[in-house]
Amino acid sequence: MTSIRTARPEELPALAEHPGDTERNAATRAYLAQLLDSKCTRPEWCLVAEDADGRPAGSVVLWTIPGHAVPLAVVLFEAPADAPEAGTALLDAAAAKARELGATELEHVVDSPAQAPQFQRDPERRGELLRQAGFRVVRDGRRFSRRIPLAGLAELPADDPRLTFRSLAELGPGAFTDVLQDLLADTADARLAADVWEHGARRAAELLFEETAELRHEPDWWEIGYDADGTPAVISLPAENPSVPVIGFVGVVPAHRGKGYATSVVVRGTRVLAAHGATEVRGDCDAANVAMAKAFRRAGYENFADRLEFSRPL
């Protein structure tokens, strides 16, 4: 019989530790400490499963954007391979708690290969546990990373001279939502396409802008790039999440695709973040978005992981 309880103060930030796995234990401990410090989670959002003998048999942590009171996802999900019922109980308990706090959906991502900070080993088993608990895959993604050279901007690709960039500070949100609406009407991203189907292109564009705006950014970082004919061609929304600077969102307007602008806009976002001190930048795209994956590679990024994004309605 598995029981679920809130983690005790002395169990934080370690939670479920794996004997002999020093690298994993250190990384997950540091990650949870960071989440607690940044208010991405709270002690009462850290749950532990106990077996019939009262021994810890897994853990899960609710996560949100700093400053928010409603959980958005689960992280640090750990369940023993020989006790799948512990995994199901943890996910159900996390879902119930998130629902009580006002959440209508709960997400989780599984990265492969396993790596810091969560070390999600055995992704197939994890995926099966998630599906049994009511989660479904909403996106098959590819993750990319680029280290910024010590010389910074001097060693990065140059901006595309065909594009003229104007910032959010100059244009205001309306212009950005207009471009996003145009982009989302013809998107290769499964998750964004689902948003368009559910909400319509305009509302999906507004939601994408609002959600990306939750990440730390400055108004002059966000830009629309204009073609020589004066029409919007690309949009660049670089930002910083609590862990690393990211290419929050980039895209090419359908009328300007096929000109190599996808690489140009990734380069632009990278240069903006590098100019503000980034030493590494990450980005991601849907596996079906072949053009954007090529753009990341051409901009000097490497595909360091694949990511399955899961979601469970509450």
Results as ranks from 00 to 15, higher is better:
A49S: 04
D178T: 12
D140Q: 10
R42N: 01
Y301A: 12
G152L: 15
E170R: 14
R257K: 08
R202H: 15
Q115Y: 03
S236T: 15
R142K: 09
R99G: 07
D182N: 08
T212M: 07
R139T: 01
D195I: 07
E50S: 05
G141M: 01
L183A: 05
C46V: 06
C46N: 09
R307G: 00
V48M: 07
L208Q: 09
R131Y: 00
S59T: 05
R131W: 00
R139Q: 06
P219C: 09
I247K: 04
R5N: 01
V250C: 15
M1A: 10
T263W: 06
L62H: 02
G225W: 12
P56N: 00
P161Q: 07
E206H: 05
I4C: 04
L90C: 02
G230W: 13
P238D: 15
E107G: 05
A49F: 02
G300D: 09
T41M: 03
R136F: 10
V110H: 01
A7F: 02
H68G: 02
G102Q: 01
V61E: 06
L207W: 04
P254F: 11
P219A: 09
R142M: 12
A193V: 05
P157D: 15
A52K: 04
A94C: 04
E170Y: 11
D306T: 10
L62W: 02
D111C: 10
P19D: 00
E124L: 11
T263N: 07
L184Y: 08
Y226M: 14
L47K: 06
A26I: 08
A288F: 05
S243F: 14
D111T: 13
G230S: 13
V60I: 05
G102N: 02
P254H: 11
R42W: 08
E155W: 13
P71S: 01
G230K: 14
R268L: 15
A291H: 07
N241S: 09
A158D: 15
A255I: 03
R136A: 12
L150Y: 07
S59H: 07
A7D: 02
A185R: 13
P219Y: 11
T231K: 12
D220M: 10
G260L: 04
E124C: 01
A89S: 05
Y226A: 14
A262S: 15
L314R: 06
L12E: 00
R203C: 03
H217R: 11
T28D: 03
A83W: 01
A103I: 06
A52E: 10
P232K: 10
A86H: 01
S145M: 12
G87P: 03
L76T: 07
A103T: 05
E206T: 05
E211P: 02
E206D: 12
R29A: 13
A295L: 05
R136C: 07
A299M: 08
I224G: 13
D21E: 12
L183F: 06
F77K: 00
L72M: 07
D159K: 12
H276M: 06
D122M: 04
E210A: 12
A205Q: 06
E107C: 04
A93H: 02
A98G: 03
A57I: 00
D182W: 08
S236K: 09
